[in-house]
Design a protein around this nucleic acid. Structure first.
Length: 433
RNA sequence: GGAGAGGUGGCUGAGCGGUUGAAAGCGCACGACUCGAAAUCGUGUUUACGGUAAUCCCGUAACGAGGGUUCGAAUCCCUCCCUCUCCGCCA
């Protein structure tokens, strides 16, 4: 959610900045709603104040010796006058507040100044390339073929068990999938200083509103039947960031460099509207594993934290010796809640292109304001909004894809990246048969 | 699933219809005392929104959430949520 004060001070300026995100902010409607809210609220508060005074007067009169009925009679006229207006005023306040909330909850975050203009991924700015795509002296297979030759990847079985966009992993491939999770978690906890957390995979609507998936993007989510109101998490970002919801962290809880959390969870996405895209293979699945990095930091540390967090994700790619590039997303390609986003794209020889494997974002106080995640600034003694960040470190399924494709050999085997060998019980290659 | 207890400020914990946003204690902050510290004493210490640009001031709201009764609700009633204890069941 954007800062109401900023919106009031400079609605046109905000609308202008939102255009970079290809969002049209209805300034006139906002101003009208806000004016009505203020009018209704002022009126109902004044009436309520008068009403409280009258009620208190009854108590005072009774203490002075009047009977209850006599005391009530003295304020009856005043109360009648107030009540004629009060109920309507309260209702108007509620309606106006609700409409304003609905409007604001649907407004995306402002992009940072350095975010490039542009409508889609073609306008993203490449920041760096790391590693050389390998030259193959045989015909390159994509991960589906590689995985199936290893008897490790079975989409037919998954389709039978559930449906499309699911997978079954077996044998050494399943083990490598698990090894990747361990490797990532161990690296981020021991090398990068993150604290590991385990969280629910089902969350309520408040949590999804907090991080920004609701109310606008309900169609991307799996919602449970029944009256629990629970949703399957689309990313660990939701439960992990919401740990700070409705909290005021003391400075010592926040620590000098903020709170850094790492969490492995499955992620569930409906992929509504992606029909026909990435239908082959395990690039786009309804269920996939991800190791997520989340940081809660002081505002002035947020920019540096995004660089650091992205670096932590990059380290995994580097340790696995997977060629990748880093891009700064343009306004039109960014997520709803983000102020700035780096995508890491890994080289996939099977597709001869770079594909997203991590998305690292800085949300400013946008999520924190939605979820009332604050910290007490010792300098002012007042609660202030935290700044939140998160990024994949990494998407596990896509990392497996990248290894299968980049490390494939002519004989159908797949070399295990050196860094992963200890997590594979010393196994150095995945072999067919 | 059965039976019971309970949800109040950073924490412990009173209040059970009337200036109670809330006693007391702890914690914390500031001040005094001190060479300094401890101890002691004093003062202060919830949050959101609005009046306003304002850390002062004023108002409204909030004692799990939502409704109701009442001139007046933390206190009474209803519904829901959550926590704890015992029994049963269970990874």
């Amino acid at each position: 959610m954007l800062d109401l004060k900023l919106l009031r001070q400079d609605p046109e300026g905000v609308a202008d900045r939102l255009r970079k995100k290809h969002f049209e902010f209805d300034v006139a409607r906002f101003l009208a709603l806000d004016a009505e809210r203020k009018r209704a609220e002022t009126e109902s508060q004044t009436l309520q104040s008068q009403r409280n005074q009258a009620a208190r007067q009854v108590g005072v009169l009774i203490k002075q010796g009047l009977s209850v009925d006599e005391a009530k009679a003295q304020v009856a006229d005043t109360l009648r006058t107030i009540d004629e207006r009060l109920e309507a005023a309260v209702q108007q306040t509620r309606t106006a507040q609700q409409q304003l909330d609905e409007l604001l909850m649907a407004v995306p975050n402002l992009p940072a100044d350095r975010v490039p203009e542009g409508a889609d991924e073609t306008a993203n700015a490449e920041v760096l390339r790391w590693g050389e795509p390998r030259a193959f002296d045989f015909e390159v297979r994509d991960h589906v073929d590689v995985g199936q030759r290893l008897a490790g990847l079975d989409f037919d079985a998954a389709a039978k068990l559930t449906g499309s966009r699911f997978m079954v992993l077996e044998g050494q491939v399943a083990r490598m999938h698990r090894a990747l999770i361990q490797f990532m978690l161990d690296t981020h906890t021991t090398r990068h200083g993150y604290r590991e957390v385990y969280v629910p995979y089902l969350v309520n609507a408040d949590s999804l509103r907090g991080t920004g998936q609701l109310p606008k993007f309900e169609e991307d989510l799996f919602r449970l039947e029944g009256d629990s109101g629970y949703y399957l998490i689309p990313t660990a970002e939701v439960p992990v960031t919401n740990l700070a919801r409705d909290r005021i962290l003391e400075a010592d809880e926040l620590g000098e460099h903020g709170v850094k959390l790492v969490c492995h969870t499955p992620c569930f996405r409906s992929e509504a509207g992606s029909y026909g895209r990435d239908t082959r293979g395990m690039i786009r699945q309804h269920q996939f594993e991800k190791v997520e990095l989340v940081q809660l930091v002081r505002p002035e540390q947020a920019d540096a934290a995004l660089e650091a967090l992205t670096g932590h994700a990059e380290y995994i790619l580097q340790a696995l010796e997977l060629p990748y590039r880093k891009v700064l997303l343009c306004g039109g390609d960014m997520g709803f809640a983000a102020a700035a986003t780096y995508d890491l794209e890994v080289w996939l020889p099977g597709q001869s292109q770079y594909r997203e494997i991590s998305s690292c974002s800085h949300f400013g106080d946008f999520q924190a304001r939605r979820m009332m995640a604050r910290w007490r600034n010792p300098a002012t003694g007042k609660p202030e909004y935290l700044h939140t960040l998160n990024g994949s470190g990494l998407a596990v399924g896509r990392t497996l894809v990248a290894i299968l494709e980049n490390y494939q050999q002519a004989d159908g085997s797949v070399t295990v990246p050196e860094a992963l060998v200890p997590f594979m019980g010393g196994l150095r290659a995945l072999t067919p048969g």
